[in-house]
Write a protein that binds this DNA or RNA. Structure first.
Lengths: 353, 353
DNA sequence: ATAGATTACACAATCGTTAATGTAAACCGA
DNA sequence: TCGGTTTACATTAACGATTGTGTAATCTAT
């Protein structure tokens, strides 16, 4: 039985197909199809007729049919670790906005920080015949095996923010190293001489680079690198608190802390306040991500903005480039966004100068 | 030309079609299709064979083809005003998680608080042959005309959070009135006697109900309703600051404020602190949404949690019910979630008792 | 043992769009 | 004026899965 029953009590409303247009105009479907896609072999008069009727009948092309025929849909798959906090929602926001402008819809998938889900997500997206896949890797993704299938099918693949370095991939990333460098440098310029660092998991490019930027800055000030001053964790608030405790218990505690994430630095701030240690006078603080709360705390927290919206837009732009460059030999494209340091009270006038 | 060229230098990899399975097994595609969907007319032995081969060849059904044939895909369209802050990302998170569990993928659309975009989004989703549409209305949506087409096509439609009341729609909402009632009651129980209210746009159900809950609470304490104590705005931080100024300039200022949103109450808090007015001793505060920052401010802000995750899950569940009840006569289904009041420092011991 | 029911599968049409190929008619220059 | 190109369209076969209908073979009951 035909799933779309002709109900006589209701107007057939929308489902106007190309066949309807063709019959109405007395031309073939080919002509309609080509007129709508502005094919050269259709005369201008015919094109006009078709376009006019299409508008009049409010013809809406069936994306599924086109997708089936062409093997590609107008859908872009996005895989993110999760949709919470400030960063990923904002990037998704940027992606959705840019994609829609280009006529694409966005399918959202979450890996929940697990590579197994990432694999499943990829299958799902491939079955959905997506035109491209945009990915920010899960925390425990260590190789690209599951992306091979995507590459083989010739589907544009763009990574953003969290990538695996060294492999030949298209990616949009923040210049984390530069951001970390600027931030640490700023702390040093404010008079800090013993700057500690809260570092994240080092197999993730973002945390590795932030640590590197921190190291760079120390070096540029001819300061020694003290591994005791680097606390590794998953950058949660609690771990920030713990890390700060640890730092304070050192024989020679720091006078500044740069964290690779805002939650951790918030944890540190809370601990310091509870112990009556003044920020920034005694210890200056700076974080990373420019979370919403950084402008709310007292003192407000200095932090690095990750250009979430721009990252989303750039990722879609890169995808579009790949679509247009289809067929030309592969070459790696990387877009590096410049971070922006927001200097707030937590790092100003540390009084050491 | 066939868009999928047979490249001999690469394994054909994934695109295994039903036809491939059928040929391999020497049965018809019908049999394969029915075996995979567990149709009664296929013998158990045959089913096993098909299933086994499908697994072995890693057969993945082409969703587009099925969607085209059935007129329905495994996609759910979601329309939200935007993807920022805490509420919508979290609800989307919940929706995505629940939908994927049920075998659906989620397409995200933003209306950007404009009914014109909402209309476009609906067209997009209908063309994508979505199986259902989940919507939280834009700020300036005042009628349901553009949803008629969805209804006519028999596509399940579920509203969440922001709905238009009075119409026969399926919806998942928070009991905003109860949440507001409890919160205001709490302020009154803490000793407040002049509780003001920051109200949002009253054509939106959520803000209307929150205001109503506030009124209910005053009434239950036999307190007069003073319209001067109700400040209407869009509930931004700045408007919260302004509103607070306005309240302070009253001949008889309030000793408590309940805001229908957290940003506004934060604005109020900042103003009070800047003027040296103590919270909660002089003026107690409470907000709505349980934004992340409410646990960070000093004092921490009392607020109502909106059960974002649950709302997402419930919305998908309602959608699934509609799918299963397809054909049975329509009756309106409403799910009302109970809010949860998080009492924090900003409303405790206002010292008036 | 035979009519009737049930089981197990195949055939072929179909969803709406696309595109390779075919083919008239008009047009062009020499 | 004739071979060859261009213009403007039609024919037709896909894309991959679904499903109403057809039909053997097996089973059940009387």
């Amino acid at each position: 039985m035909n799933p779309r029953k002709p109900k006589k009590e209701e107007v057939p409303d929308s489902p106007v197909s190309m066949a309807d247009l063709a019959k109405e105009l007395g031309v073939s479907m080919t002509t309609v199809s080509r007129a709508l896609s502005d094919h050269y072999s259709i005369g201008p008069a015919t094109k006009q007729k078709v376009l006019k009727l299409a508008k009049k009948l409010n013809y809406q092309p069936n994306q599924m049919a086109a997708a089936l025929r062409k093997g590609k849909s107008k859908l872009i798959g996005v895989i993110v670790p999760y949709i919470e906090g400030r960063f990923f929602p904002s990037v998704v926001h940027g992606i959705e906005t840019a994609a829609r402008k280009a006529g694409f819809s966005v399918i959202i998938c979450q890996s929940n920080e697990d590579v197994a889900n990432e694999r499943k997500n990829i299958e799902t997206l491939l079955n959905a015949q997506v035109a491209g896949i945009l990915v920010s890797l899960s925390r425990n993704t260590r190789d690209f095996k599951h992306f091979e299938k995507v590459r083989k099918r010739g589907i544009p693949l763009v990574f953003f923010d969290r990538i695996l370095e060294g492999d030949n991939v298209n990616a949009v990333v923040l210049n984390d190293r530069e951001g970390a460098f600027q931030t640490t440098k700023h702390l040093l310029e404010q008079g800090c001489r013993r700057v500690a660092h809260f570092a994240g998991p080092q197999h993730l490019n973002i945390y590795k680079n932030r640590r590197q930027g921190y190291v760079d800055a120390l070096r540029s000030f001819d300061l020694p690198l003290d591994e005791d001053m680097i606390i590794y964790s998953d950058m949660t608030l609690e771990q920030g608190t713990e890390g700060m405790k640890q730092l304070l218990s050192l024989p020679n505690p720091p006078d500044g802390v740069f964290a690779a994430g805002d939650s951790a630095i918030l944890g540190a701030l809370q601990l310091l306040k509870s112990r009556g240690i003044r920020v920034p006078q005694d210890i200056a603080l700076a974080g990373f991500s420019n979370e919403g709360f950084t402008a709310i705390t007292e003192p407000m927290l200095t932090s690095v903005d990750q250009r979430c919206e721009e990252m989303g837009q750039a990722t879609v732009r890169l995808f579009m480039e790949l679509v247009e460059a289809k067929g030309t030999p592969f070459y790696q494209r990387q877009v590096v966004l410049q971070p922006q340091l927001f200097i707030r009270e937590s790092s100003l006038h540390s009084g050491k100068r």
